[in-house]
Simulated assay, not measured.
Amino acid sequence: MTPLNHLSQGPGNEKLQELLLKHRDEQRKHKAIEACSETKAIIDELEDALSDIVGLNELKLQLRKWAKRMLLDERRRALGLKVGPRKPPHMAFLGNPGTGKTMVARILERLLFMVGILPTDKVTEVQRTDLVGEFVGHTGPKTRRKIKEAEGGILFIDEAYRLIPMQKADDKDYGLEALEEIMSVMDGEKVAVIFAGYSEPMKRMNNQAQDSLLYGFKLHPSCTVDVVATLIERETSGKQRKEMNGGIVDPMLVNARENLDLRLNFDCLDTDELLTITPEDLQAGIQSLSR
Score class of each variant (00 low, 15 high):
P89D: 03
L111H: 06
L46S: 11
V83S: 09
D44W: 02
K101D: 00
V104S: 02
F93A: 06
G80R: 07
Q62C: 13
H90N: 15
K101W: 05
L112N: 03
P88L: 06
V115D: 14
L111W: 04
Q127Y: 07
E47V: 12
P119M: 12
T99R: 03
E47P: 12
M114S: 15
T139V: 06
K87G: 00
M103H: 08
N96V: 11
L112Q: 05
L72E: 09
E74M: 09
N96L: 14
T102I: 08
I117L: 06
T124P: 00
E134T: 13
D121K: 12
V123P: 07
E58D: 15
D48H: 14
V123F: 03
P97Y: 14
E109C: 09
N57S: 15
T99N: 09
R106Y: 00
R69P: 00
R106A: 08
E58M: 10
E74K: 11
R64F: 05
R110N: 04
T102V: 05
G100E: 07
T124E: 03
T102M: 08
G55W: 13
L108A: 01
A49N: 14
D52G: 11
M114N: 14
K87V: 09
T120A: 02
G137M: 03
Q62R: 15
G137H: 03
A49Q: 13
L118N: 06
F135R: 08
L46C: 13
G140E: 13
D44S: 13
R76I: 04
W66G: 10
K122L: 10
L72S: 05
T139Q: 09
K87D: 05
E45T: 15
G100S: 01
L72Y: 11
V83H: 04
K68N: 06
R110T: 06
M103N: 01
V115A: 00
G133C: 11
L112H: 07
T120L: 10
S51Y: 09
L94A: 13
G116N: 07
H90G: 04
T139M: 04
F93V: 08
V123G: 02
L72F: 13
A78D: 08
R110P: 00
D121A: 13
R77V: 14
L46T: 12
L72I: 15
I117R: 05
A49G: 10
G95W: 06
R77W: 11
R69N: 07
R86I: 08
K68A: 00
G116P: 06
L79T: 10
P97K: 12
L56P: 12
L59S: 15
L81W: 01
L79G: 13
L46E: 05
G116E: 10
D121Q: 12
L118F: 07
D130H: 07
M114T: 11
Q127K: 14
G95D: 01
L131M: 09
T124R: 05
R64Y: 11
N57V: 13
D73W: 00
